[in-house]
């Protein structure tokens, strides 16, 4: 099963929403709020949509509220992917 890593997330963020020059995206960002690393609500919508397409899953609207830091986002997405796999195996 594919798992989304922090590096995947970094790549998607950079690619779809650009990067704030004052932020070291390659640094220790896992527990920083997205707002702190320069990403707003539109950037998150775009990122989630890219993840959905790239990893073939679907993420409900309200989930975005849980996605406040890269760590919580990855946790949510990977849980979702695991559920998808379990669902399709069943």
């Amino acid at each position: 099963m594919a798992e989304v890593t922090l590096d995947d997330l970094r790549r998607i963020l950079r690619d779809c929403a650009g990067q704030d020059e004052s932020v070291d995206l390659d640094g220790d960002i896992a527990d920083l709020l997205f707002a702190e690393i320069g990403y707003d609500s539109l950037a998150m919508l775009e990122t989630v949509s890219r993840v959905e397409r790239e990893f073939g899953t679907s993420i409900p609207d309200e989930a975005v509220q849980e996605m406040v830091t890269p760590r919580t986002t990855l946790a949510y997405i990977n849980r979702r992917l695991a559920e998808d796999t379990a669902g399709s195996a069943a």
């Binding site: 929403a17 650009g18 704030d20 020059e21 320069g38 990403y39 539109l42």
Partner: peptide, 8 residues
């Protein structure tokens, strides 16, 4: 331009 502005 600021990097965040370019893709939007």
């Amino acid at each position: 331009l600021p990097g965040r502005l370019i893709p939007q």
